[in-house]
């Protein structure tokens, strides 16, 4: 059997917010959603993406003025990336085999073991590349590594079920309860996401629901209450994590030629986050602010 290969856009070591302990988070490229606040808009497309980091560019003369004037990159090939002296021109997305990926992430095995950490598969949406994601999880499990799957839930039930089978922990993102508002904010309806989550919780021992708190999008009382009511009815849910909105993604949107609609939005205050957390805790759900264990 030939091992599947996948398109990975980042392997982030010393991740301490994507599950327990010190973890390596593997970000897979491609996502069926297009959330307006997405932290990694360059991850959405299921193909390598060229980007230019302006702050690194030394204007060495390899790119034309017209190229430099544009937010997005055009007319470039992989060899241009290699030639760029400062690394300002980058190709986001690397094709890698599951074998090679496992070897790479196992370099931090010692730290997984001293911290109770492991590996998290994230994205994008990892289940866009389901065979690769499932194979990687399986191989890591076989190596005795704690595995986590971070998913938006918008996937076929079979893919989700098979991936979850090889994950010690599932981090399940939940954005909005109202289907129409969900579609406006992410581009898709939440129907499948909600049924998948219910089904998963009746099957899997360890599921954490992660809720990005996006001011003006999903932090209103009605949505928070509806979310709390829904998740508290789920069987055996491990915990809820609130992930506060952060404006870091704005320059990244420009780089991939997308429009950012949250300009000027501030990070929610601690008081606001605590108030939201209290709604979940009142229903008996362990709740953390940030991705760590509650």
């Amino acid at each position: 059997m030939t091992a599947p290969s996948g398109l990975v856009f980042n392997v982030q070591r010393f991740s301490v917010h994507d599950g327990p302990g010190i973890r390596t988070t593997i970000f897979l490229k491609g996502c069926p959603l297009a959330c307006t606040w997405c932290h990694n808009p360059e991850s959405q497309e299921l193909a390598p993406t060229f980007v230019r980091l302006r702050h690194r560019c030394m204007q060495c003369g390899r790119c034309t003025e017209a190229e430099l004037a544009s937010d997005t990159v055009f007319n470039k090939a992989a060899c241009d990336v290699a030639d760029c002296p400062t690394g300002a021109l980058q190709l986001v997305g690397e094709r890698i085999s599951a074998d090679a990926l496992v070897v790479r992430v196992l370099r931090d095995r010692t730290f997984f073991e001293t911290s109770g950490g492991g590996v998290t598969l994230s994205g994008g949406e990892p289940l866009v590349q389901a065979p690769f994601a499932i194979d990687s999880l399986k191989r890591l499990r076989a190596e005795g590594v704690h595995t986590a799957l971070d998913t938006c839930g918008f996937a076929s039930w079979e893919h989700l079920r098979d991936a979850a089978e090889h994950a010690d922990l599932v981090l399940y993102d939940l954005k909005l309860m109202d289907p129409a508002r969900h579609e406006t904010a992410t581009g898709v309806s939440n129907a499948r996401i909600l049924t998948n989550l219910s089904a998963l919780c009746s099957l899997h021992q360890a599921v954490w629901v992660r809720i990005p708190v996006i001011p003006g999008v999903n932090d209103d009382e009605a949505n928070i209450d509806a979310t709390a009511a829904f998740v508290s009815a789920l069987p055996r849910l491990g915990q809820v994590s609130l992930l506060p909105y952060h404006p870091t993604a704005e320059p990244k949107f420009a780089r991939v030629g997308k429009h950012y609609t949250h300009h000027g939005t501030a990070t929610p205050s601690n008081a606001h986050l605590e108030a939201i957390a209290a709604r979940f805790r009142a229903r008996g759900l362990p709740t953390s602010i940030g991705g760590q264990a509650a």
């Binding site: 010393f14 301490v16 010190i22 010692t110 730290f111 073991e113 001293t114 911290s115 940030g290 264990a293």
Partner: peptide
Amino acid sequence: EHGLDALHALVRG
């Protein structure tokens, strides 16, 4: 405590 645990694991590692 979360940050302290991470630091602790780096040292032990």
